[in-house]
Amino acid sequence: MATVSCRYTGNLHCEAIHTASGALLSTDAPIDNQGLGEQFSPTDLLATALATCILTIMGITAKSRGWSMEGTQADVEKRMTQEGPRRVESLTVNLTLPTGLNSEQRLLLQRVAAQCPVKRSLDPQIDINLNWN
């Protein structure tokens, strides 16, 4: 069975259904590529996948140790190439951890964030920067 089932609905919009849960996600082409920007673009979802994977892998690490990570924030800046084939050129993730963590906890979370499965799966041509606040 497919993990996600996707369907083109017209006017540069798509719908994706997560087959296990039935959760629905809609996309639109971005404004700078003929779309209306009414939904996440496919490349926005790539940026979202990176940020949520980082938060999830840190959450797993924190949960297994009884630490609270609630309120951790990840803001992603996506840059597309301006020349040559259109692709994601860089992803900058600005991460803010809760103030209650000590330096050892923060260091461990930074290490696991750098090893999240999405980050390890992305093309090395994409410049990925993790900034810690």
Results as ranks from 00 to 15, higher is better:
Val4Pro: 02
Leu45Ile: 10
Val118Lys: 03
Leu91Gln: 01
Arg79Tyr: 07
Gly35Cys: 03
Ser121Gly: 07
Lys63Ala: 12
Ala23Phe: 02
Asp32Arg: 05
Thr72Glu: 08
Lys78Ala: 05
Gly71Ser: 10
Gln82Arg: 14
Asn33Ala: 15
Arg111Ser: 08
Thr96Tyr: 03
Leu24Tyr: 00
Gly100Arg: 15
Ala20Trp: 00
Cys14Thr: 10
Phe40Gly: 00
Glu15Phe: 00
Thr61His: 15
Ala74Gln: 02
Arg65Gln: 13
Arg65Val: 05
Gln110Pro: 10
Val118Asp: 02
Pro30Asn: 06
Arg7Phe: 08
Thr3Tyr: 14
Ser41Gln: 02
Gly71Leu: 08
Val88Gly: 06
Ser64Tyr: 11
Thr92Ser: 09
Ala20Phe: 01
Gly37Val: 06
Ala51Asn: 07
His13Met: 06
Leu95Gly: 11
Leu25Val: 01
Thr72Gln: 05
Asn129Trp: 01
Gly66Pro: 12
Glu77Leu: 14
Thr52Ala: 08
Ser90Ile: 11
Thr92Lys: 10
Asn129His: 11
Ala113Arg: 09
Asp75Phe: 08
Arg79Gly: 08
Arg79Cys: 14
Thr92Ile: 15
Ile128Lys: 00
Trp132Val: 01
Tyr8Glu: 03
Pro42Met: 04
Gly100Tyr: 12
Asn11Ala: 15
Leu25Thr: 03
Gln34Trp: 15
Ile128Tyr: 04
Tyr8Arg: 03
Val93Glu: 04
Asp44Ser: 02
